[in-house]
């Protein structure tokens, strides 16, 4: 049974120095948690993006909470580059651990299986591998001839945070075909999920929803956040508000602009309350 929390209480589960896992922009990002995380202020985070990062990790970087970002890309999609990330790279104020999408997936898969590493083709001869002392080139033990292959260590985050359409009273969460959300939950020590709504009937009682459910076993806590992925989209529910993402891309280009964007959002929140 998972606990139902407020967003602020959920944010307090994140402690300084933790490894925090976040999903790709289209999979279900808990944008509703971004402000509470910034207000809570737990810093020195190692953020790992499955497999790429967008607006949320960019805002956490802008707020100075991120020490290391591990990802295969940082992008706002059609709105362009991630502005706070770009600024932090230029200033050398963040440690970037470049990866490639299937390598991030491989690291999560190894953690899910409780094994030390998973192997992956490709990578040999890239500058990504050259800058990853934590990855090892090993020889395929089953090959008759030399066959180098890259071993990717398990990625075991302290906490994963994402947004999904629906949970039930037991804390089961429906993720449909967005299986990367299951990877996040399987690999992470604790998983915090915001949802559009909580339903009374068990999601496991109907085979049609059960197949797309992460059982409560993997879910530490749930919080309700209506339209909790906005301005990003949530599959099957609503599309992204690209005007708003583009406004962020524009305004966050400078440190002052990013602060003004945050302040503006604060005023909007207060007005709504």
């Amino acid at each position: 049974m998972s606990t139902v929390l407020t967003l602020d209480a959920m944010a307090r589960r994140v402690k300084p120095g933790m490894k925090l896992a976040l999903p790709v922009d289209y999979a279900g990002v808990s944008m509703a948690m971004t402000r509470p995380l910034i207000a809570h202020g737990a810093g020195r985070l190692h953020v790992v993006c499955l497999p790429t990062g967008g607006m949320q990790p960019d805002m956490l970087i802008g707020a100075g909470l991120v020490e290391t970002i591990e990802t295969s890309a940082m992008t706002l999609g059609e709105a362009g580059g991630a502005p706070c990330f770009a600024r932090a790279i230029a200033a050398g104020s963040i440690r970037i651990v470049d990866s490639t999408c299937p390598a991030v997936h491989a690291g999560f898969l190894a953690a899910q299986k409780g094994v030390p590493f998973a192997t992956l083709r490709g990578l040999i001869g890239t500058d990504i591998l050259a800058h990853r002392p934590d990855w090892k080139v090993i020889d395929n033990p089953f090959s008759e001839t030399p066959d180098p292959i890259v071993a990717i260590p398990a990625i075991r985050p302290d906490v994963a945070i994402f947004h999904a359409p629906v949970a039930d009273r037991d804390g089961n969460v429906w993720i449909g075909r967005r299986r990367e959300l299951a990877s996040l939950a399987y690999a992470s020590e604790q998983t915090l999920v915001t949802v559009e709504r909580i339903v009374d009937e068990s999601l496991l009682s109907d085979e049609r929803t059960a197949a797309g459910v992460i059982p409560a076993l993997y879910v530490e806590a749930v919080a309700v956040a209506r339209e909790g992925a906005k301005p990003l989209g949530l599959w099957g529910e609503y599309g992204p508000d690209m005007m708003e993402v583009a406004r962020y891309a524009r305004e966050a280009r400078s440190e002052a602009g990013f602060r003004a964007f945050l302040d503006g959002a604060d005023h909007a929140l207060e007005a709504a309350r």
């Binding site: 890309a73 230029a90 970037i96 390598a103 890239t126 990504i128």
Partner: peptide
């Protein structure tokens, strides 16, 4: 990834995405 000396490149692009794998297979 970017232009200049890695990791503090003077121009930074989004990143490699899946290229370091897909180009091989």
């Amino acid at each position: 990834v970017g232009i200049g000396d890695y990791p503090q490149t003077k121009v930074r692009w989004p990143g490699s995405f899946g290229s370091a794998y897909l180009y091989f297979v």
